[in-house]
């Protein structure tokens, strides 16, 4: 396929000659990318500083202006990724008392690339004692014929705070989605808080049926963890039916946390539901 080979050529300069530390497995394709970007935030007694801000492969990290003691990092896509065979990872740590916000400048688009082998995209989030970490990326779009395995590994200290938003868009406009598999595992104070695995797009069995998505093409979650959420709360239902999208915001069992789960026909309807869920979670 000519477009694919052009893409592969255009990506060649970014293919690191020396693989990133800790990634020893072989890639699915000679043009595939392996990259691990790292952000480490610490608190110096006055403000949050960023002693490590390591861009790699498609992840260009940019420090953004903030007011107050928090640090803010924007991730700018430096190339088209993930494509089939890529091995991407983001390692983000907020050390004791640090306050860190991380966003992405644009949606992440999973494309087929030069191979149908799965790409992997691993996001590791760590918040230490009294730290506050907010991970609010733009949506992840699963384009036709793409194959992406995403994982979230989140480790939270007992007194830490987390706000995590995850939006998945299955296919661009009028397009069949690719295969998108994701797993999120969250540990809070060493205990399992959340473990979920989803698989959408063919060949995942039943993914579009009445038990899983029922025609919806946008699905997302919002996870809020904070010590003060350790009180009994009734679940909040957003929208009665299911056709125009719906969500539930409910407490998790293993720690002071609220999780919103939403499905919607469109990305904008999904964002609306998650924004509304966030307002409820913050008690506004």
């Amino acid at each position: 396929m000519s477009s694919a080979s052009q893409l592969a050529e255009s990506r060649a300069p970014f293919d690191p000659a020396a693989p990133a530390a800790g990634t020893e497995e072989t890639c699915g394709h000679p043009n595939s990318v392996r990259a691990t970007a790292r952000i480490r935030a610490t608190y110096n007694g006055r403000v949050t500083t960023l002693p490590q801000l390591r861009s790699d492969g498609p992840f260009h990290l940019r420090r953004m202006r903030t007011s107050g003691k928090a640090a803010r990092v924007g991730i700018i896509g430096a190339m088209s990724a993930p494509l089939g065979g890529d091995r991407l990872a983001l390692d983000i740590t907020a050390e004791d008392r640090a306050e860190l916000d991380v966003t992405t400048a644009a949606a992440t688009l999973a494309l087929r690339g030069p191979t149908t082998a799965p790409a992997t995209y691993d996001v590791r989030l760590t918040a230490e004692e009294h730290a506050r970490l907010r991970w609010l990326p733009q949506p992840l779009i699963s384009a036709a014929d793409s194959n992406l395995h995403q994982t979230y590994t989140v480790k939270l200290a007992a007194s830490s705070r987390l706000l995590l938003r995850e939006e998945q868009i299955l296919g661009r406009a009028n397009e069949k989605p690719g295969h998108l598999v994701s797993r999120i595992r969250v540990h809070h104070a060493g205990r399992p808080l959340l473990d979920q695995h989803t698989a959408y797009g063919d060949p995942a069995p039943g993914w579009d049926g009445p038990a899983i998505l029922h025609g919806h093409r946008a699905v997302g979650q919002l996870l809020v963890v904070a010590p003060e959420l350790d009180v009994r709360r009734a679940p909040v239902l957003l929208r009665e039916g299911t056709k125009d999208g719906c969500a539930v915001l409910a407490p998790l069992a293993g720690g002071p946390a609220l999780l919103a789960t939403a499905v919607a026909p469109t990305p904008s309807a999904l964002r609306e539901l998650l924004d509304e869920a966030l307002r409820h979670a913050l008690g506004e």
Binding site: R183, R185, D195, Q196, H197, T198, A199, P210, A211, I212, L213, H214, H216, V219, P235, L237, E240, T242, C246, A247, V248, A250, T261, A262, V263
Partner: peptide, 17 residues
Amino acid sequence: DALPSASSPLLDITAEQ
């Protein structure tokens, strides 16, 4: 972690409804 955690958003939402 080896154990499956396969989940469905609609089953969770509609169960609360």
